[in-house]
Nucleic acid binder design. Structure first.
Lengths: 127, 127
DNA sequence: ACAGTATATACTAAAATAAGAATATAGGTA
DNA sequence: TACCTATATTCTTATTTTAGTATATACTGT
């Protein structure tokens, strides 16, 4: 994978946020949608772009599609996620907030017995 | 400066190569042109984009315009340059070759007494 | 088979980016 | 002043990327 493909990908804030979230664990499309507050179509397209690029993998669980980072995860991507999580900028703060919101989302799902794909809550020991 | 601005910038291989070269020392437009083998117009536009973004600074020396990285250089940019210089990919190899060619260019300028802007060869102790 | 939920795709319109030719500016020198 | 070199800008066209609407598919439960 070429560096410029990675950069083109993460130059889009939404895609960067998605990758940041998935690095913390798998999520299905509807949860990503909720966390980023975007339409279904847009989320689906962004995920397709990144899957096509080889950054994401997905598997079906019932009607859900669960997305994960492709393994082994591209080193350049990881290096940037690590950098940004520590850095100070509007987007960096957003990434940090997203991770907090992910935690809350998973707690909520656990708490009220909402249905969710297996992998998602396994990663937080909740389902 | 937002991360996505940096990424959008370095998603273009030419701009990435320019930044990589300038990180090693100042260069004037015509030398950059020669090293990357692009037209004058294109080089000038790329430089203008990056100056506008706040990544580059320039000063005039006679008819030459000498470009340098803006100080302090953006940390995200540096982090990526460092990563890519050690990594293995077509673009990464190009960055390494560019640095070698920069060395040769400066030697040539020195060797045959070609005129060049002060800063350029100072950075290689040649003028 | 039918309805409902989650997700993906196709098609179209709008917006942003890049590429090239021509032209302009700025400084140096005869 | 006139010419030369280096560089920047403008304008036009082509290409790529994004956004939205509508529609399709895949699975689940009745």
């Amino acid at each position: 994978m070429e560096a410029s493909d990675i950069y083109k990908c993460i130059a889009d804030t939404q895609r960067l946020r998605i990758l940041n979230l998935l690095e913390a664990g798998p999520l299905c499309v509807c949860h990503l949608q909720e966390l980023l507050d975007v339409t279904q179509v847009k989320m689906s397209k962004q995920l397709a772009i990144m899957k096509q690029l080889g950054l994401l993998a997905s598997h079906r669980e019932g009607t859900w599609m669960v997305y994960t980072l492709e393994e082994p995860t591209d080193g350049l991507l990881l290096s940037n996620l690590n950098y940004l999580r520590e850095a100070e900028c509007a987007e960096c703060n957003q990434l940090q907030r997203d991770l907090l919101n992910r935690g809350k989302l998973i707690l909520r799902i656990t708490g009220n017995g909402e249905d969710c794909p297996e992998g998602v809550c396994q990663s937080a020991n909740c389902c």
